[in-house]
Amino acid sequence: MKEEFVTLETAKMLKEKGFREDVFTFYKLDYVEGNMILSETYDYSDNFNKKDDCFSAPSQSLAQKWLRETKNLHISIIRNACGYGYDICKADNGTHITDGIFKGPNDGGQWDTYEETLEVGIQEALKLM
Rank of each mutant, 00 (worst) to 15 (best):
T70R: 15
D112V: 02
K51H: 12
C54Y: 10
G108V: 10
C89A: 11
T7Q: 11
Q60P: 04
K103P: 00
S59I: 02
A63T: 09
I75E: 09
T41R: 15
T70N: 12
D92C: 08
I77F: 05
D107I: 05
I101V: 14
G108L: 05
Y114D: 01
D87Y: 08
Q60E: 11
F26D: 02
Y44F: 15
K12S: 11
G100F: 08
D53N: 11
E4C: 07
A63W: 09
A63L: 06
L38K: 05
T95R: 13
F5W: 06
K17V: 13
D87I: 13
Y114G: 03
N80E: 15
E21N: 14
V23I: 15
K50C: 02
Q60V: 03
K127D: 11
D87G: 00
W66H: 02
P105Q: 13
E16S: 10
V120H: 01
D52E: 14
F5Q: 12
K50S: 07
L118V: 06
D30M: 05
E69M: 10
N49C: 06
K71P: 07
F19L: 11
S39A: 13
L62N: 12
K65W: 08
G108C: 11
G104L: 05
H96K: 03
W66K: 02
L62A: 04
Q123R: 15
G108E: 02
E40A: 03
T95Y: 04
E16Q: 13
G121R: 09
K127I: 04
K12W: 04
C82T: 10
L29F: 01
A57H: 05
K103V: 14
V120P: 00
D53H: 12
G83P: 12
P105R: 12
G109M: 05
S56G: 09
L29S: 00
A81G: 06
K2T: 08
L128Y: 10
G108I: 02
F19T: 07
E9G: 10
H96A: 04
D53C: 01
Q60C: 03
E16W: 01
D22M: 11
V32G: 00
Y42L: 14
L29E: 06
L8W: 08
L14I: 05
W111A: 05
D52Q: 05
R68P: 00
E40R: 13
V23C: 03
K103R: 13
S56M: 06
D46F: 09
D112C: 01
D99C: 10
D30H: 08
T70G: 01
N35Q: 10
K28E: 14
G100Y: 08
N47L: 04
L14R: 06
I88E: 04
G121Y: 06
W111E: 01
E33D: 10
F5D: 00
R20F: 02
I97C: 06
S59Q: 07
V32I: 07
Y44Q: 04
D52V: 00
D46K: 15
I77M: 06
P105I: 05
Q60M: 08
N80I: 04
I78T: 04
T98N: 07
A91W: 02
D22T: 04
T41Q: 13
F102Q: 14
T95Q: 14
D46C: 07
K12L: 01
G83D: 07
I97A: 03
D112Q: 05
L8Y: 13
G104Y: 03
